[in-house]
Design a protein around this nucleic acid. Structure first.
Length: 433
DNA sequence: TTCGATGATTTCTA
DNA sequence: TAGAAATCATCGAA
């Protein structure tokens, strides 16, 4: 029987983890032996194994001394090789089951979401894209910009916490990995630990830490989702438009009552003037049309007010234009551009002014009529608490813009439409009473 | 706290 | 796709 076989026998004799060691092993020749003293070697191996098995029962100093003795033992390299082979074989079967984990789809989803929200990946304005999308959905302007910046600030906060925690985890992971590797390297001198095994151990540690990271990512995603939903919910938190904005919108509405459908350009202009968005202008006109139609009586007073207001403005503009016209070319009052009305609110107003006396305005006649209207209106405004009182039951405006079907008449047929901005004419006759 | 006003959203239609 | 109509949700005055 050769050395190898004898070692096998001995190992088998102590039931070393029940492993049967097969295959050729290149065992180094035992120190100081020529391979003939079989009983002596058997005794040696028996001693070594006995020492190994009883090492836990010994005191630390004693064990250290024994350990040193074992390390120096002539049979140590042979036993070490056997253990290495056993470990290699058992390790392979374990590795086979554990290696090459497919990427976790949940982790991928989390990563993608964090990237999309601007939490993970390079700094790109703290998820400004997401915030902008949400802001666009909300259609807000000034107020939303506040909410937008608030959203960004909170997202930046989440991003900072996420990165700090991630860094902490990575640092802890690296420290722990280094520590374990050092320990394993240290231990590899006394027990068989292959570099592959160390690698595997590192992999296990990394997997453990990435599961912790996943929890962090999950929590971050939840935080972002909550923030996002709160931000989007804020869309419903409306704020009333400023008084000025409402006035501008109302002026347009009542001066275009025959066809209160502003064009895209007009909407943009109004949005600009009112510091709101085009969609808010659209909403406002949508609401206004519906509510006006539903309760015309209720809006009568408002209509009167705005009609008068528009009339005053128009009259001012007209008077100024006439004055200019007269100053520039007294002999030809209606020559050039100054002869025609350049009203701030064109459309109905222009039409109503044209039809004020049945004919279109010309030259000095315009000046006289308009000035008279202005004076009358000024008088009414100064003498009365409000148009309603002054006008009594004689409404200066009646909602002729609506047709029998409840819809607005087509703006392309203004001749059949009596605009509310006929106000000046009506006012003149009404107040003259 | 109530209630009307009002901005926003949703659903439907032409 | 714009607009009508219904509805929701909030604001703000009483």
């Amino acid at each position: 029987m050769d050395d190898q076989a004898r070692i096998m026998q001995s190992i088998g004799g102590v039931s070393l983890a029940g492993h049967s060691v097969q295959g050729g092993m290149a065992l180094p020749p035992p120190h100081g032996h020529d391979g003939t003293d079989g009983d002596g070697r058997k005794q040696d191996i028996g001693d070594i194994l006995h020492q190994i098995m009883t090492i836990t029962d010994q005191s630390l100093d004693e064990a250290q001394a024994k350990k040193h003795g074992l390390n120096c033992h002539r049979m140590k390299p042979a036993l070490f090789s056997v253990l290495c082979e056993i470990k290699e074989k058992t390790g392979l079967s374990i590795r086979g089951a554990q290696e090459e984990d497919p990427p976790d789809p949940q982790l991928m989803r989390l990563d993608n979401m964090l990237l999309a929200e601007g939490v993970a990946g390079p700094e790109k304005g703290g998820g400004s894209a997401a915030a902008a999308a949400a802001a666009a959905a909300s259609g807000g302007a000034a107020d939303n910009s506040i909410e937008h910046s608030d959203y960004r600030a909170k997202l930046t906060q989440i991003r900072q916490i996420y990165h700090t925690e991630l860094e902490k985890y990575e640092q802890a992971c690296n420290e722990f990995t280094t520590h374990v590797m050092n320990l394993l390297r240290e231990q590899s001198r006394t027990r068989p630990i292959s570099p592959k095994e160390i690698e595997r151990m590192v992999g296990i540690i990394h997997r453990k830490f990435s599961s912790i990271q996943m929890q962090l990512k999950q929590s971050t995603c939840e935080a972002v989702m909550i923030l996002r939903s709160r931000f989007l919910d804020a869309r419903r938190k409306r704020r009333n438009f400023s008084k000025q904005a409402t006035e501008i919108l109302n002026e347009y509405f009542y001066s275009h009552l025959s066809n209160p459908y502003p064009s895209e350009e007009a909407k943009e202009e109004l949005a600009k003037k009112c510091s709101i968005t085009v969609s808010q202008v659209s909403n406002w006109f949508g609401n206004k049309r519906i509510r006006y139609k539903k309760n015309i009586g209720k809006f009568q007073e408002e209509a009167n007010l705005y009609a008068a207001k528009t009339a005053v403005n128009a009259a001012h503009a007209a008077a100024a234009a006439v004055q200019n016209s007269q100053a520039n070319s007294p002999t030809t009052p209606n020559s050039g551009s100054s002869g025609s009305f350049n009203l701030p609110n064109s459309g109905d107003m222009f039409l109503s002014m044209q039809s004020l006396n049945g004919d279109s305005y010309q030259g000095a006649q315009v000046g006289a009529n308009v000035q008279s209207q202005v004076d009358t209106l000024r008088h009414v405004i100064s003498q009365t608490a409000g148009y309603n009182d002054a006008l009594g039951g004689n409404a200066m405006y009646s909602p002729h813009g609506l047709n029998a079907n409840g819809g607005w008449q087509d703006a392309t047929t203004p001749s059949s439409v009596i605009s509310p901005t006929e106000g000046p004419g009506s006012v003149q006759s009404d107040t003259s009473n």
